[in-house]
């Protein structure tokens, strides 16, 4: 019954290691909340912080034409940080259609 082939041994070992890591991480996260950062990706990895990004970086992302990027930064300098993403609609050159697309790219902390 315990006569495993090398492949079976490798598969069993791999599954057990993953399970071991998973349970350990779950337990550590219960003890210390900071551990959760290890397996919950931060928002900044998936979206751009609208209030922190510089003009050069915004142009480099190529998600907007350079002129619109300049207008966003100018708007931020003039009116202060964006309080919500809805504020983007007030920037010239951003209509409903573009806003719908940008909503998934930016976030406001």
């Amino acid at each position: 019954m315990l006569n495993f082939t090398p492949e079976e041994k490798k598969a069993a070992l791999f599954l057990l290691i993953i399970a071991f890591c998973g349970i350990t991480l779950n337990s550590l996260a219960k003890l210390n909340y900071r551990v959760k950062k290890l397996f919950c990706p931060q928002e900044r990895l998936a979206r751009i912080d609208l209030n922190k990004i510089s003009l050069e970086d915004l142009i480099m992302t190529r998600c907007l034409p350079p002129k619109t990027a300049q207008r966003i930064i100018a708007y931020r300098l003039q009116h202060g940080n964006f309080s919500s993403l809805e504020g983007l609609k007030e920037v010239r050159g951003i209509g409903n259609q573009r806003y719908e697309r940008l909503k998934d790219i930016f976030f406001v902390e």
């Binding site: 890591c21 991480l25 779950n26 290890l38 397996f39």
Partner: peptide, 14 residues
């Protein structure tokens, strides 16, 4: 079992 494996997967993805 899904919960156990998902934590490790999420850690690698992060």
């Amino acid at each position: 079992l899904g919960g156990i494996f998902s934590t490790t997967a999420a850690m690698f993805i992060t």
